[in-house]
Amino acid sequence: MKLTKTKAYKTFMAPIKDANPISVAVLGICSALAVTTQVMPAIVMVLAMTFVLTFSNVSISLLRKIIPKNIRIIVELVVIASLVILADQFLKAFLFDVSKQLSVFVGLIITNCIIMGRAEAFALANGPWLSMWDGIGNGLGYGYILIVVAIFREFLGAGSLLGFKLIPQSFYDMGYQDMGIMLLAPGVFIVIGLLVWLENILKSKKA
């Protein structure tokens, strides 16, 4: 069987292509807005998020036959919160600067609706193998929006990417100025709004 025909591949690609957790399902926006002033923290956030999402999906899928139905939300929260503690301790130990920049938003992965949503909608009904691919796919679908937004904001707002200056000094001498608003709150709302608009236009052209 070809790779693209397997169920795992389809589960993996669906959230990236069609059912993007941020732009289509409108979940998990809080962190997408807050950590995207620069590209580096956005990448770290995506990795932490994908880690938590994948492992919470797998563990909840393994436990799905044992968890009593009426207390499942609490059980899910405990699983997710423990994974977030792991991710947070890891970041504090090895990437201290970025972890300081992300501040409370690592902790807020717990209440990120994508994780709860995937646990409820997918992991409770499917086996661990498919749930793992669903987790990775959703993590990356979330990730690519985050990174695109971060690229726009860092480039327009500070004239750099990953901390390297991209806009030469001569531009500034000629009177070019960074768009300060990109680094502030309103900038990100507007960037995401315009990106979703663009995505909708591209999609309607295809269909």
């Binding site: 502030l184 709150a185 309103p186 709302f189 709004g193 979703v196 909708n200 309607s204």
Partner: peptide
Amino acid sequence: PKGLDGFAINMITTGLIAMAFM
């Protein structure tokens, strides 16, 4: 315009409110 309604315009509106709060 089609494509702008729904989520996209909601985000832009929120952006404008945020600008007012600034």
